[in-house]
């Protein structure tokens, strides 16, 4: 049996609190209408991720995790929100709001997903040997909620934010299940996300040029008759 570092109760309580905040933020994102608010929430999500990763690093003594926490801070708290903000400023979409499916219904669907995610995570977390294994359910819930957010949104920018939030959930899952992915992979993913946002930014301009709006409903007539 793999023996763990002695783990003091307060640290794990703090970690649980952070995970709960992450879930709460996901729900908040699901219900926000304004794009700017969503970006703020996304930055907060990154911040919590960074904090929890460094806590895990501190308690498990794995120094590599400090690097990945620093990477998270740099990329998800500072760079990406900055880029996204500049993007919506230049697109003139700062105060865009969108009509969504009924928010209470979305929330209820989100609740069901969380229950489903916890049910799913239970047998998996039995197999994991990490101290943070209980948080796997939350990580899965974050992924599913972000997906749900992508489904309910109609604007191109919010879709991308949903996509990035999903990546956050994946990252959290990796940290809680196996103490993070190997550094090489993590760096690779970080680069992918960065490049992806740049490319999607270019697409936004193209889409606006074509349809004079960022509403994805315009793309419905692209299908083959």
């Amino acid at each position: 049996m793999h023996l763990l570092h002695p783990f003091t109760v307060p640290v794990i309580n703090v970690l649980n609190l952070l995970a709960a905040c992450l879930l709460l933020l996901s729900f908040a994102m699901l219900s926000r209408r304004r794009t700017q608010r969503l970006i703020t929430l996304f930055a907060w999500q990154g911040g919590i991720l960074c904090l929890s990763t460094s806590l895990v690093a501190y308690s498990s003594g794995l120094h590599e995790l400090y690097y990945s926490a620093a990477l998270t801070l740099l990329l998800k708290v500072i760079t990406l929100p900055l880029i996204l903000r500049r993007l919506i400023y230049r697109l003139g979409a700062e105060w865009d709001s969108e009509t969504m499916v009924n928010i209470p219904v979305t929330m209820l669907a989100g609740l069901m997903l969380v229950i489903f995610a916890f049910g799913l995570a239970q047998p998996i977390s039995m197999m994991a040997t990490t101290i943070t294994r209980n948080m796997l359910g939350i990580a899965l819930a974050v992924i599913l909620l972000s997906f749900l957010m992508m489904i309910t949104r109609r604007k191109a920018v919010t879709q991308v934010i949903g996509f990035l939030a999903m990546e956050n959930g994946l990252f959290f899952a990796a940290t809680s299940a196996t103490y993070g992915m190997p550094m090489v992979i993590e760096l690779g993913i970080a680069l992918d996300v960065l490049v992806g946002v740049f490319i999607l930014g270019l697409f936004f301009f193209q889409i606006r040029e074509q349809f004079e709006s960022l509403d994805l409903r315009n793309m419905e007539n692209l299908k083959e008759e």
């Binding site: 749900l148 489904i151 419905e220």
Partner: peptide, 18 residues
Amino acid sequence: LQGGSLSIYLLYSFLTLI
């Protein structure tokens, strides 16, 4: 299946995942 709406396509992959 090819309805044209992006949300529907996302829903397909979401449901498949579930």
